[in-house]
């Protein structure tokens, strides 16, 4: 299990990264490498050139935006998200979710931009991006664009990013005032990818629900949100179960995942409601 040969270039600016990506067909970005390097070791990907963006200082850091939200640089490591006081204060469910993301050594290396670009349908950050109405900021030779998270994830490991674009930041709008939140994830072994997870917000606007591990992308569950109305968790869970389209794999059948989606939806909403009531 050793990687095949490839070329490698390290860049220090986004422009250089974009140029390098454009210089070679099938070139790919490497950031934390926590999902990518296992695939290299298994020789599941055959990439002629890796563009290492770890040296781009502009992509680091968490800053406040003018609308009261946060802009999280693509190279922000999971561990930085976990311990950021800004995150803990403004997006406590994001803080909570980080505890479920793999393990410390992975969180030390893995980046938000990497997780979002990798687009694993069972990963936490894509699902939270969808829940929080995040904007994915991407840059390519044609300039910068912002893509709503719900439009970003297209299929397992597939996004609307062009081959020569890179994610530079994730922008989170402020949480609606006075929101309660819930985050529930199930995996048989701690730190593994979720079999299913549900994240929820509840406020005077009703509920926002997103689910991961139960669909071919992280899913913003609009039907379940509608069914929730002003507080019907059972209806929301039922709606979610018909809204998701899970598939079978070794860690759970589609039926079990659908079942779990309902269970975790109720739990997440109940937690969110108790937070809201406070």
């Amino acid at each position: 299990m050793k990687p095949a040969l490839f070329d490698y270039i390290r860049v220090t600016t986004v422009d250089d990264a974009i140029r390098a990506l454009g210089s070679c067909n099938d070139a790919k970005v490497i950031a934390g490498g926590q999902s990518l390097v296992p695939m290299l070791n298994f020789r599941m990907v055959d990439t002629p050139l890796f563009v290492d963006i770890n040296g781009i200082d502009d992509l680091r850091g968490i800053t406040e935006t003018s609308n009261g939200g946060l802009r999280i640089g693509a190279l922000t490591r999971h561990f930085e998200l976990e311990v950021s006081p800004l995150i803990q204060e403004r997006y406590p469910l994001l803080h909570e979710a980080m505890k479920y993301v793999a393990h410390l050594a992975i969180r030390n290396r893995g980046t938000i931009g990497g997780s979002i670009s990798h687009a694993d349908p069972a990963a936490e950050l894509p699902a939270l991006a969808v829940l929080l109405d995040a904007m994915i900021v991407a840059r390519g030779p044609r300039g910068e664009r912002q893509i709503a998270a719900v439009d970003f994830f297209e299929a397992p490991l597939t996004t609307s990013l062009e081959a020569d674009e890179i994610v530079t930041a994730v922008e989170l709008p402020p949480l609606p005032e006075n929101s309660g939140w819930g985050f529930e994830e199930f995996a048989q072994r701690h730190g593994d990818f979720a079999v299913v997870g549900v994240a929820a917000l509840v406020g005077k606007y009703g509920a926002r629900i997103s689910v991961f591990g139960a669909h071919n992308t992280p899913l913003r569950a609009r039907e379940a949100e509608k069914a929730f109305g002003s507080g019907d968790t059972n209806a929301a869970a039922e709606a979610l179960q018909s809204e998701v389209d899970p598939s079978d794999d070794l860690h759970g059948s589609a039926d079990y995942r659908r079942h779990l989606a309902g269970v975790l939806c109720k739990r997440a909403l109940n937690n969110a409601m108790s937070g809201y009531a406070l």
């Binding site: 926590q34 070791n41 298994f42 393990h103 992975i106 030390n108 290396r109």
Partner: peptide
């Protein structure tokens, strides 16, 4: 394991634990 599950290769890089099998 060379795929980041077992943790036997964990080292510190700039003070942080990392998987040496998932780092070039």
């Amino acid at each position: 394991c060379e795929h980041g599950i077992c943790g036997a290769c964990t080292v510190l890089m700039n003070g942080d634990s990392v998987r040496a099998c998932l780092t070039l």
